[in-house]
Nucleic acid binder design. Sequence first.
DNA 1: CGCGCATTGTGACATTTGTCACCACTGCTT
DNA 2: AAGCAGTGGTGACAAATGTCACAATGCGCG
Lengths: 215, 215
Amino acid sequence: MISVAIVDDDPIVCSSIGTILTATGTAQVLWSAHDGETAVANYRRHAPDVLLIDVQMPGIDGLEAAARILRGDPDARILILTTFADPDYIRRAIDLHTKGYLIKQDVASVVPAVQAVMAGQVVLGAEVLGQLPLHVAPREGGAPGESVGEDPRFAVLTDRERGIAALVAEGLDNREIAGRLYLSEGTVRNRISDILAKTNISNRTKLAVEWLACH
Amino acid sequence: MISVAIVDDDPIVCSSIGTILTATGTAQVLWSAHDGETAVANYRRHAPDVLLIDVQMPGIDGLEAAARILRGDPDARILILTTFADPDYIRRAIDLHTKGYLIKQDVASVVPAVQAVMAGQVVLGAEVLGQLPLHVAPREGGAPGESVGEDPRFAVLTDRERGIAALVAEGLDNREIAGRLYLSEGTVRNRISDILAKTNISNRTKLAVEWLACH
DNA sequence: CGCGCATTGTGACATTTGTCACCACTGCTT
DNA sequence: AAGCAGTGGTGACAAATGTCACAATGCGCG
């Protein structure tokens, strides 16, 4: 039987997650805690198979607690639970090598997540991948009061065109873009040609530069 | 009851995955196929809740098939199965917005994966995250006194080459650069060719992107 | 001085990129 | 039903880019 521990400052959340896990026969709850320090201390004495831990908590937050636990036990299976798909949190969770980052919405969804983690997989909430900076590292803000917004120049582009423009801005050539998007190279050329015409930019390098300047 | 379809060129794999899913009461197998074309055609007529598809296959591969299916049904829940954690495959799978990328090792592990996907999550094999090129966004805020420095990549360049690289990073084409520096266009081409060779960068757009990333 | 290096240049060539005309399909609106 | 925008595709062609071989100049250095 899988054993889990649940850490969330809201006792209701703890108990409802605990209930669904036990009621479905998925796992038994070894212990639960409501703050990070307690969680770390408990983990050292009674390590569960999977630790479910909230990010927002009084004292040290869930990610900090996860980091401390992983320092003592690098193989700890930790699932981060949270209400928001904050890119920074997600990033830190992944860097920590936690086994997942779930958006708390449907309590029942933790059941397959726990099972998947026990099967050696990593589970992410659906919106999470979109938040990952897999593409271009955003250039830092720079101008203080003034947020980047969106260059009106690119406003005329369709979603698809924007996607291709972003890949151009990663420095990919047409063949690479075609491969990435499963398109023919000819189509990529056509699309880029359209983009350049719409934005009144003369070549792909300028497009990349302009795109990076405001994304 | 969840319905799945299974696509793998090896019939043994298809049937063993099918067996474990039905035996555990997880899902019923709508159909299975052994190549990409058939899978795409079948999907259009009988869309399963979740499609499990292998990468390596005769004809169009699993990712290509997934791309075609997603073109017709952007919400298709597709799980990629494979033997290798190839970074390029993983990257492409994620770009396609498939619901997961599993390493085929333990047949039983598809069970929680399918359930997690039905719960709206994304499932990745354990080794997968490590393969992702999560190139660290130069999250500033780092050491204050210490500026970006200089990418060691550009350290080998001469002053002249650096000047030309900077103009490339402004998006100028060869004719414009030649005009700006009072050089012949041929010389500019040679210089840029040298820069690309020295820095091991494949084309001017990539050069521009890299240059901007650290200047 | 001779050597290496950076710089500028030419010409030829292969590859990549951009443009254009035209086709097919889908989903939406009129 | 017809029109339209968005998307994906082909083929041909022109222009830009990148590579290579080779040559000439100037500059600093042992």
